[in-house]
Amino acid sequence: MLKVNGIDVYYGKVQALFDVSIEVGDREIVSIIGANGAGKTTLMKSIMGINKPKNGTIEYNGQVISGLPPHKVVSKKIVYIPEGREIFPNMTVQENLEMGAYSVKLSKAEMERHLEEQYEIFPRLKERAKQKAGSMSGGEQQMLAIARGLMSDPELLMLDEPSLGLAPVIVDDMFDVIVRVNKVRNIPIAIVEQNAFMAMSISDRTYVLEVGNLVTHGESKTLMDSDEIKKAYLGG
């Protein structure tokens, strides 16, 4: 269970997050929505230890994790699938996946099993296993980024704009995968999205960020009916 308690985050002198608090419960899907520049990615990166909050704390399963370097946060089995894919372009698809399991010790057989599992969810990746990751299409790279994130058996999964640059059909598939991961693996998921409608319809609760401030949060169902949210994020 993740708890962010009133964090302030700065880039140099510019403040990007103001007293932001969120919670992600044990089995829920939480979505975080907001316009461009609202601070969604900043929030994710702060949880991962890439940005250091100036005030406030971040707790995971009762332990304070704010202040830890990213690799230590990853070792707590928190996985963040970053915005913009961030794959390793000169490594093969399979090597990328194997690096996803860097933080866990896997035997050869277990590694095979993990790879097969991902190839089952994303058959496209299997066809491209020996190809350089950078030579794949944007959508395929996004699938790779998600598959790579799942390789280490995360206990909390955070996705930053997983639908970015994907064809509408694929977007549906992508959200199906996310829901399935949540149900089958029983792990909480935090998802940041521009596609607010999609994110809200698969999530239990939603947080709304506006220029670094948390403005509302609540049950996704309830929020989707609110006129303000409809107007601002759901296009009508």
């Binding site: 991962m48 690799h71 990853v74 970053p82 390793f88 933080s103």
Partner: peptide, 8 residues
Amino acid sequence: TAASLMGI
């Protein structure tokens, strides 16, 4: 950044 997110 990606390397650190892999736990490196």
